[in-house]
């Protein structure tokens, strides 16, 4: 399948590794835009929520009045969240010590830093099912969130042991890990070719 023409993909650029996602979009020749304010959402067709600190993003979403427009956007348009981005897209955060309020887009419950602090971060090859058979992709888990429960409408595209780590629900895709840190674009391609219909 081809990447659709004439789409502009936004990347939430409040904090985190948004430049890595922009560089990936660049490498595929996809027009993109940094999203920091609500007005930026009017000019994009889909959105990537990057890795970073979910606490920081959550605070800035409220401080700059993004919560309502962002939630509305994520409910109807293609969205892809990695790590902190997945936390934001979740329905419930189990360990809510710092009171991050998820956007409730994908019916999953997550535990932030569910695999431990930085010493337990890891870089792995992971088998994923992106629709046309399975393949192995680079999966970097950085103080990663753990998915501890999934709802009925959620499809699991990859697991680490028994834990779901790549999930899909409607036009929303989310991973507990990063696939944007190396040169690979497998998951981004999957998102661009299957979710913008």
């Amino acid at each position: 399948m081809e990447i659709p023409k004439n789409i502009t993909v936004g990347v939430l650029a409040i904090q985190g590794d948004f430049e890595r996602h922009l560089a990936q979009l660049d490498s595929l020749g996809v027009p993109h835009r940094e999203v920091r304010l609500a007005a930026d959402l009017d000019r994009i067709d889909g959105l990537i929520l990057p890795g970073g600190e979910s606490t920081t993003m959550d605070i800035m979403i409220d401080r700059f009045k993004l919560r309502e427009p962002l939630t509305r956007f994520c409910r109807t348009k293609p969205v892809y969240g990695t790590c902190a981005g997945m936390i934001l897209l979740s329905r419930l955060i189990r360990d809510n010590q710092s009171r991050v309020k998820p956007l409730n887009i994908i019916d999953i419950e997550v535990l932030r830093n569910g695999y431990g602090r930085q010493l337990f971060s890891s870089d792995e090859r992971l088998e994923v099912n992106l629709g046309n058979g399975t393949k192995h992709v680079e999966a970097t888990f950085i103080r990663a969130p753990k998915i501890v429960a999934i709802g009925s409408g959620v499809e699991v595209l990859a697991r680490r042991g028994t834990d779901p780590v790549l999930v899909k629900s409607g036009k929303a895709l989310a991973s507990a890990f990063h696939n944007e840190l190396g040169g690979e674009t497998a998951i981004l391609r999957h998102f661009l070719t299957h979710y913008f219909v």
Binding site: Q15, D17, S121, S122, D123, I142, R143
Partner: peptide
């Protein structure tokens, strides 16, 4: 180096902050 990638990975997540 896999361990190095994970270390740089956390630095990447702190960007813009």
């Amino acid at each position: 180096d896999k361990q190095y990638k994970v270390k740089v990975g956390l630095a990447e997540m702190l960007k813009g902050g």
